[in-house]
Amino acid sequence: MTVTSTDLRSYITGTLNFDLPGVTDADPLFSSGLVDSFAMIDLIMFLETKGGLRIPPADITLDNFDTLDRIVAFMARNAR
């Protein structure tokens, strides 16, 4: 299953309680410190459940997970 930017924003703001005011889909989340590692772990677990896949630690990179755009693209590439 693919994941949309709206899905991610809903989870990050609604479940993880992080505000994303003015944050675009291209803005860095983790490297900027906007979202901390605890929340990133929860987000990755959410993506595994929603996408029905296992994300190997080697795939947990800034290229794949630092922005909403990149996360959406990663999930699309790995959709089952």
């Binding site: 590692s37 772990i41 990755i44 677990m45 595994e48 994300i55 630690p57 947990i60 990179t61 800034l62």
Partner: peptide, 12 residues
């Protein structure tokens, strides 16, 4: 899995 994800994030 959470532990491994945390380790990977530390590396970033």
């Amino acid at each position: 899995r959470r532990y491994l994800a945390g380790l990977a994030l530390q590396g970033l």
